[in-house]
Design a protein around this nucleic acid. Structure first.
Length: 475
RNA sequence: GGUCCCGUCGUCUAGCGGCCUAGGAUAUCGGGUUCUCAUCCCGGCGACAGGGGUUCGAAUCCCCUCGGGACUGCCA
């Protein structure tokens, strides 16, 4: 069986957003599942809007997601190819030069809409005489090349493997431009040529290309190319149910990365947007996704990108990742906090930081929550007392409790969590009071607050010296 | 306006004629665990867009209506 080849073909006119990322992911999953190849093709034929910066950031984001491509192309490197094929079509009488200027076209389009006619190119340059052409050229007009659609517009049929065969009663276009006046190809033309030349076997792209695919059918026929298979993914929508755009909130992959989402969470969430496994599994490793991925389970209807679910996934991964990696992921965010500096980091020590982060991670759903995180702050100095904490410290037995337990802590160099539990137990006996009456003042004194991670762990990490100092400071 | 796609809990989805008084996840609410918060566990609320058919039987098939979306460029 021939190697399956799919592609992801973004245009570098903006950052990679979640919709594009999902398309890339599905292509990647398909390639992996079929042991095929993924081709990354940068569609930068719009010289005005494309930029190197975006190209670089798209590649970076894909790498971050773990989507690796096997081959890489840039359409701006291939301009001669498109031009050559365009000329070939002109020679064969399947395309022609059009000398209409953009403003003229725009004018006619507007008029057509006003008059209730479809805004379709009227084909007026189809049969220009040599003299007319010369006239236009003398006027300094740079022609475009338009593709000649069959006279009697046959209806296009797109054999979509996700939605089923789609029939178009009519194309909503006239002869369309395949080579722009600046010599660059238009999207549909470059796309068809490249998909063929790069031997793409399956074109899996988003649904906003459906009408493009219909147009492309004619191009394949005119060029004498065999058609690949096609599949159209439903759209990813913003919360307002319209197409994702820069306007519909933060949707660029890079932003999510900066906000402290893990790539595996992003991948997991994206994979479940428009696809589902046969069973009711939700959390998938990459390998599991590849294993269970199938075109059959792809959904037709569009889906809203839901931040809440992503947060949940991210929380799951934050709890599960190896501690070493979590520490690494966390450090840039910690560095941004007000309470961490080199000195305080040294004081808590690498092991202390590890334990503190491990203790705090169930409470966050994204790494950015680590910045100025209250649960994290308690491991560093400069924690003030909340009003509630002061109230607890004012309890009748509080002072006695604290003095008693402080004494126990003073006697050791190291405090294991179970040592703290024992000290609490003994103190409770001594003072003849309840657990709450010991735990609460202890927490209040040590952390300045009434809520937070397990206090015996906190004290264990802090160590006896600091703990005692803190208790002392409130007495 | 035209063409095309889509329509199950707020959101992601299971369902492909009887297993559905519609299942799961998330969100939300309540309970439990805990010194507390988070986690975790248990439970509740919550949907077949509407109307016609077809059929013994429809969320599932057909038609219409309504609703949402995309495209309609010398952008991709």
């Amino acid at each position: 069986m021939k190697t399956k080849r799919v592609r992801f073909a973004p245009s570098p006119t903006g950052w990679l957003h979640v919709g594009g990322a999902r398309t890339a992911l599905f292509n990647w999953l398909y390639a992996k599942k079929k042991e095929g190849k993924l081709i990354l093709r940068i569609e930068d034929t719009d010289l005005e809007r494309s930029s190197e910066e975006y190209t670089a950031s798209i590649k970076e984001d894909l790498k971050w997601l773990g989507i690796k491509w096997d081959e890489y192309y840039k359409q701006s490197d291939r301009l001669e190819i498109y031009e050559r094929y365009a000329r070939k079509l002109v020679h064969e009488g399947k395309a022609y030069h059009c000398y209409c200027r953009e403003d003229e076209l725009e004018e006619r389009r507007k008029k057509a809409i006003e008059e209730g006619r479809p805004p379709i190119y009227d084909g007026r340059c189809r049969n220009l005489t040599e003299e007319e052409k010369k006239n236009y050229r003398d006027q300094g007009r740079e022609p475009t090349i338009r593709f000649k659609l069959p006279e009697q517009q046959p209806h296009a049929v797109v054999p979509d493997e996700i939605k089923g065969e789609i029939e178009f009663e009519s194309l909503t276009t006239g002869d369309f431009v395949i080579l722009k006046s600046d010599g660059t190809p238009s999207y549909n033309f470059a796309c068809v040529l490249d998909d063929h030349l790069m031997e793409i076997s399956f074109v899996l792209r988003a649904e906003d290309h459906l009408t493009n695919t219909a147009k492309q059918m004619f191009l394949y026929d005119a060029l004498g190319f065999e058609k690949p298979r096609f599949g159209h993914l439903s759209m990813l929508l913003g919360p307002d149910k319209t197409k994702l755009s820069k306007r519909s909130g933060v949707t660029s992959v890079g932003e999510f990365r900066k906000d402290g989402y893990l790539p595996e969470a992003m991948v997991n969430h994206l994979a479940l947007l428009g696809w589902s496994s046969k069973d009711e599994q939700e959390v998938f490793s990459r390998e599991e996704l590849i294993e269970s991925f199938s075109l059959d389970n792809i959904v037709d209807s569009p889906q809203v990108f839901d931040r809440d679910k992503l947060d949940w996934f991210n929380g799951q991964y934050i709890k599960e990742v190896e501690l070493e990696r979590f520490v690494e992921l966390a450090s840039p965010f910690l560095e941004k906090s007000g309470f961490v500096d080199e000195a305080s980091l040294k004081e808590i020590g690498a092991e202390g930081l590890r334990r503190a982060l491990d203790l705090v991670r169930p409470s966050i759903s994204k790494l950015s929550e680590l910045v100025d995180n209250e649960d994290m702050a308690i491991f560093f100095d400069g924690v003030g007392l909340t009003g509630e904490a002061e109230e607890v410290l004012a309890w009748e037995d509080s002072e006695e409790v604290l003095r008693a337990i402080m004494e126990k802590f003073s006697e050791t160099e190291v405090l294991q969590p179970e040592d703290v539990s024992k000290a609490v137990r003994d103190t409770k006996e001594e003072v003849d009071t309840g657990y709450k009456e010991v735990y609460k003042p202890l927490r209040a004194a040590v952390t300045g607050r009434l809520s937070g991670p397990e206090i015996k762990e906190v004290i264990s990490i802090l160590g006896p010296e600091k703990t005692v100092a803190r208790i002392n400071s409130v007495l």
